[in-house]
Amino acid sequence: MATADDFKLIRDIHSTGGRRQVFGSREQKPFEDLVDLGWLKRSSVDSRATHYQITERGTSAAL
């Protein structure tokens, strides 16, 4: 179930172009929650960072 923080984060991601790069596993937790909701997808993972991209469902949630 989505929380107020989830909606705040997806709106922030949407307003800044729909993509986010995250460093460190602790910082990934809120983004992984949005992946579980179907609002974000992991577009790539490298040794230092994970890249996320907003989905259509995420765009709808952000509006």
Rank of each mutant, 00 (worst) to 15 (best):
R42H: 07
M1L: 13
F23K: 11
A4D: 12
Y52I: 01
Q53M: 12
H51N: 13
L34N: 01
R19M: 12
D46G: 10
L37E: 02
R11N: 05
D6H: 12
A61W: 04
R48L: 15
T3H: 06
L40Y: 00
F31M: 05
S25M: 10
D36S: 14
A61P: 01
A62N: 02
G24D: 11
G38F: 04
T50H: 07
Q28E: 06
R19I: 12
V45S: 11
A4P: 13
S60V: 14
G17N: 07
A4W: 11
K41Q: 12
I13T: 02
Q53G: 04
I13V: 07
R48V: 14
E32H: 06
V45P: 06
F31C: 04
L37C: 03
W39G: 01
A61I: 09
S43A: 14
L34M: 03
G24Y: 07
R42P: 06
T59R: 11
A61F: 05
A61G: 02
K41C: 08
A62C: 05
D36A: 15
S44G: 10
R57M: 14
T55S: 04
W39T: 00
H51T: 15
R57V: 10
L9W: 04
I54R: 00
R11H: 07
T55N: 03
T59E: 10
R42S: 07
A2K: 04
G24W: 06
A2E: 05
W39K: 00
A2I: 06
P30Y: 05
R48M: 14
D33N: 14
E56W: 10
F31T: 02
V45R: 09
R42Q: 07
A49P: 05
A49Y: 12
L40N: 01
P30A: 09
R48G: 15
T59H: 07
K29Q: 10
I10K: 00
Q21I: 15
V22D: 02
S25F: 10
H14E: 06
R11G: 05
S44C: 12
E27H: 11
M1D: 10
W39I: 01
G38C: 05
I54M: 06
A49D: 06
S15A: 14
T50S: 07
T3W: 04
R42L: 10
R19K: 13
V45G: 09
T55Q: 02
R20S: 05
R20H: 05
R11V: 12
T50Q: 06
L40K: 00
L37T: 02
Q28Y: 06
L63A: 06
Q28W: 05
I10E: 01
Q21N: 08
D33F: 11
K8Y: 08
F7V: 07
F23D: 08
R19E: 13
D12C: 09
T55A: 02
T50I: 14
R42Y: 07
R26E: 15
I54S: 02
E32F: 04
E56L: 10
A61Q: 05
T3F: 05
Y52T: 01
R57D: 11
I13S: 00
D46F: 05
I10P: 00
R11F: 10
G18I: 02
A4T: 10
K29V: 06
D36P: 03
T50C: 08
D46Y: 04
D36I: 14
T50N: 07
R20D: 03
G58W: 02
A49T: 10
I10T: 01
I54Y: 00
H51I: 15
F7W: 12
R26D: 15
D33L: 15
H14F: 14
R57C: 11
R42W: 04
G58E: 01
H51C: 14
A49I: 11
I10C: 02
G18S: 03
L40E: 01
D33A: 15
H51L: 15
A62F: 03
Q28D: 04
G58C: 01
G38Y: 03
E56G: 08
Q21S: 15
D36C: 09
G18E: 02
D33C: 11
V22W: 03
S47Y: 10
A62H: 02
A2V: 06
S60N: 13
R42C: 07
D5K: 12
F31R: 00
T50V: 14
L63Y: 06
L9G: 02
P30D: 05
L9N: 04
R19L: 11
V35E: 03
V45K: 10
Q21Y: 11
P30S: 07
L34K: 00
A4M: 11
Q53L: 11
T3P: 03
D6Q: 14
E27Q: 12
S43C: 09
L63K: 08
